[in-house]
Design a protein around this nucleic acid. Sequence first.
DNA 1: GTCTGTGAACTGATTCACAGCG
DNA 2: CGCTGTGAATCAGTTCACAGAC
Lengths: 228, 228
Amino acid sequence: MRTEKISEFTTQRLSTYLRCLESLDESGVETTSSIMLAKQFDLNSAQIRKDLACFGQFGVRGVGYVVRDLKRHIVEILGINVVHKVGIIGGGNLGMALAEYAGFRKNGFLVVAILDSAAAKIGLASRSGVPILGMNALDEVIRSKGITMAIIAVPAEAGQSVCDLLVAAGIRAILNFAPVRLASRPGTKIMSIDLSVSLESLSYFLSGQHSNPLQSGENFPAASLASD
Amino acid sequence: MRTEKISEFTTQRLSTYLRCLESLDESGVETTSSIMLAKQFDLNSAQIRKDLACFGQFGVRGVGYVVRDLKRHIVEILGINVVHKVGIIGGGNLGMALAEYAGFRKNGFLVVAILDSAAAKIGLASRSGVPILGMNALDEVIRSKGITMAIIAVPAEAGQSVCDLLVAAGIRAILNFAPVRLASRPGTKIMSIDLSVSLESLSYFLSGQHSNPLQSGENFPAASLASD
DNA sequence: GTCTGTGAACTGATTCACAGCG
DNA sequence: CGCTGTGAATCAGTTCACAGAC
């Protein structure tokens, strides 16, 4: 087991392995192997063994991994054995859609509040009943609701100031959809997903200027990065 | 100018440089430098020069880059000097929110249709008037509307089959929000954004198991990856 | 035999450092 | 001078290949 720094590539892959293990478990499969998992994601099997080796020795030589055990280990590594309370900042189209995103609930993330600065929205709620609260109550809401993670879904101009408020309120994990590069304090982790950047990058590959005219397959992880 | 294969890291950075150049241009700034841009994103200035050098020599030694010229060059490199027609597959919360996302329109991406398999939704439209059409009309809609890029916003189970349909209909650039690993034909580019993977990865850094207890700053690009 | 765990080799991305031009 | 463009050096992430456990 290595205590070295773990890369974001590794944590993202762990999350995808977990999803696969869950589906195997549901199908009643009891053991699997790095080779079998690798085939699913077309990844090298050594990659998977290395990723897991960062956290311990979970396998049995000559056999592979016990699905249920490995699943439990990854859940613990990722810290999703506890429910995380999530606050969404910005009650626009994107923020409201994310509040309703079913995938979160399934995976132990619970959206408990939407915060918005528009007086007209305050007091309303999302379809499933997540309340829209005022930005001025930010500190109080984070404390009283036990929010530990935030999703920023505000326009670019507001991104940095919202981020600063969140950090000041003690939030240490932020998923940012605002199309700005956010600067943050040490001790806070920010991941950014920039929809325009993604589309523009796709556009490049469409424009066919790149030497290799044929692109395909799918590589790996998902979503951005932020650390230090 | 190198014709070598360009990495997705580079294309995503180009997109962020572009955004910065646009704001510089609006502020009336006429020239900039790799050092100045690097400061904005805390990146190494050589990184920026290397990224640009892949496509030509756009700078002036001793001076830097002419904002307006560089902007124009990057727009052309990314192929966003033409408007891309985008189809969104899946008229759920996320699909509808993306159809309204203002950031796309600003950057030359035009959402022209939402496709859904639920009969009840067909014939409706998004708030801004993007029509919801039936999945069975997929081929026809893609052809008649001139759609070249698709965004998949369907549940995991439907992801792969939707992807196959899109590829068969001639779509070569896909932004995938379905939480599955999509396999695709050569010649098609898929980028995946997996919200649960992002949150779970954040959760890991929150759980504080990693050796370096203090994380901060923000690294770089945005969103996932898929190629070959 | 099979499959894990892991050092060694490799590949690719980032950073350094400097020659060369305005 | 200052800043670009770029080879050379470094660093990080991936793959290879094999010893060791079952």
